[in-house]
Design a protein around this nucleic acid. Structure first.
Lengths: 350, 350
DNA sequence: TTCCTCAGTGAGATCGTTCTCGCAACGTGC
DNA sequence: GCACGTTGCGAGAACGATCTCACTGAGGAA
């Protein structure tokens, strides 16, 4: 930059003004400085620029599993939106590790990101997010929410989604409906007490989906059979075993609900391993419309989340807050859609 | 930081030394400064730190399609490795747009990344990469290579992979083998002239795979029938149509090779739409082991790329170069593996 | 002419760190 | 007691940009 100024025969200040496009500079000077910059091969140092302007045009994204298609689609949505506004993404993958999440958020704050999009691992551990906020940087949550902080969040209405799905299964004649979800069995008691269709603060998507399942059954006057509610955990082995167990009980469910795509795969594999016919012997209704869902036999009926939209909206919220700060925090629940394919059978009246 | 120094009753320099862990400070002072920092809630500004040290501990990743499972796995590999070395990732998605790629690389350079992992859109357009290099920042290529620059690159031996796949099909009795790839038909003439098993500089993966296909046929003394080589393009509609056309010619191929997972999906759909039985009437052999490949009926036999490894190795190369600069550029080709499942039939001797 | 405004410019402060230097205090060896 | 290395610390420069302010000269109004 000092070379550019010398070559153009002006002061550093003027050269900077000409290239940075701020302050007052004559058109003639701009031209001279521009060509000088060209010759010298000048590349601005955004770090130095950021130091003084306080703007890095970088936003941090912290997600739990980058290999999950749901998150990559969210990421794509966010990426497209921020790019349109001249921002870049600093990416971190937590792998569901709360300690790692804290550390990554801290590092991002150190790097002066202007805001954070986070899918928090633990709804109750929010010190790092509170810190971010108190540093004047907005935080937008995706997919999940937290208890102790009032934050913008973008997700779906999990209770409604599974509630509707259960209702649909019931209308198709199903009475014994199993659910494989990623929640501890002891949560079931609490789920059964939930009356509201509003999600509880800090409720995980899995929990919300279990609640919706209970509510759907109750609405139809059916009870919740605890034997039909199983924990699929986080790994496919565990999920497959859970599905196999559930399908091996004497009074087997006629339909299975799975609360994420990994569980859906595992359930499908279990069904096949047991030699059961889907949907004739067991119906399957999954969460998330992965690309393979329409490819397998039978094509899977799913509850589809607008993942791209979630990412895009989250980014828009964040940018809006970066722009004008204020405004009360808002929780947006985007609509899910039930995509009927071939994995749900109609059962004649018993 | 100035507050911390005041609170601790030392100079800014000493406070900085105590917290930054450099220079000489007494243990007692460190303790005092630490607690002062704690009370004040001091968070270091990495930007300022980077300004003077010249190290940002950030590396840029530029890929073409973040929603492609191959790239997300590559990304995961790179992410894990750089994280272990205390680095972060700045991510950009080009969507196969060369102009966007140039701009993103420039921005990343502006943000002073310490190096770049790039999957370049155009092998001949490398000005932005040359600029990066001349700024003293290493560049490692993944999946693809470029013509005009000597750069580290990590990928697979595409010629060998399809060559072997074709040989396998031939050993299973196939003679008419079709290929759906993402290359212009006019490239075929050039592909046919390739003798070497070494990839040509700037050759795209699709092109390399087509060359390997030709070489595999030639090795078995079979000619390449131009009617069996079709361009699947980049979109699923076009790919499906291409597959449908190929399977509708009078002397239909008995086996189909597809050079990426999108093309494999499209081919599978076309096979089903035409009411053909796989593998009895048409065998299918795809590239890339997506999660659905083992789930569909029949499970697809694929050439699997070590995507995670590619990302991890690329990151390791980059970090090594950041650490000591020199060393001649190296091209690493990781081994592919042919995973046999159920989509390839054995044909009896005609 | 005189005064005022304002476009264009340069000098120097500034952002928040690290780095370079100099200085004082403290052994230690002779 | 003197020279010397070492430890601990502070003052100020440095990184590369932007921002503030004061200055000059041109143009317009009285």
């Amino acid at each position: 930059m000092i070379d550019v100024a010398r070559k153009a025969g002006v002061s550093r200040a003027t050269a900077a003004r000409a290239l940075g496009g701020y302050g007052r500079v004559s058109a003639a000077t701009i031209a001279v400085v521009r060509t000088a910059a060209e010759e010298v091969g000048y590349r601005p140092n955004e770090l130095a620029r950021s130091m003084i302007t306080g703007r890095t045009r970088t936003i941090g994204v912290v997600i739990s599993d980058i290999e999950n298609q749901f998150f990559t689609r969210v990421l794509r949505g966010a990426s497209d939106v921020v790019r349109d506004h001249g921002y870049d993404l600093l990416l971190a993958n937590t792998d569901e590790d709360a300690v790692a999440e804290r550390q990554m958020v801290r590092v991002m704050n150190g790097k002066q990101v202007e805001g954070l999009i986070v899918c928090p691992v633990d709804p109750d551990e929010v010190d790092h997010l509170a810190e971010t906020l108190s540093a004047g940087r907005p935080v937008v949550l995706i997919d999940r929410t937290v208890t102790a902080l009032q934050l913008d969040s973008v997700g779906v209405d999990n209770r409604r989604a599974t509630h509707d799905a259960v209702s649909r299964l019931i209308s198709r004649g199903h009475r014994r409906i199993g659910i494989i979800s990623g929640v501890q069995p002891r949560f079931l008691a609490r789920a059964l007490r939930q009356e509201s269709s509003e999600p509880a603060p800090g409720e995980t998507p899995s929990e919300g989906r279990l609640v919706g399942y209970c509510q759907g059954l109750r609405e139809a006057g059916l009870g919740v059979d605890e034997a039909l509610v199983v924990d699929g955990g986080f790994h496919s082995d565990q999920a497959r075993q859970a599905a196999r167990d559930l399908l091996s009980i004497p009074d087997r469910p006629t339909a299975l609900l799975t609360t994420d795509s990994l569980l859906t795969i595992s359930a499908l594999q279990a069904i096949r391993n047991l030699g059961l016919k889907c949907p004739q012997e067991v119906s399957l209704l999954g969460f998330d419309d992965a690309d393979w869902a329409s490819l397998v036999e039978p094509p899977i009926t799913v509850i589809s989340q607008p993942a791209y939209e979630i990412g895009a909206r989250a980014a828009e919220f964040l940018l809006a807050r970066i722009a004008d700060g204020g405004a009360a925090s808002q929780t947006v629940q985007l609509p899910t859609t039930l995509i009927e394919r071939g994995s749900v059978a109609t059962i004649g009246p018993a």
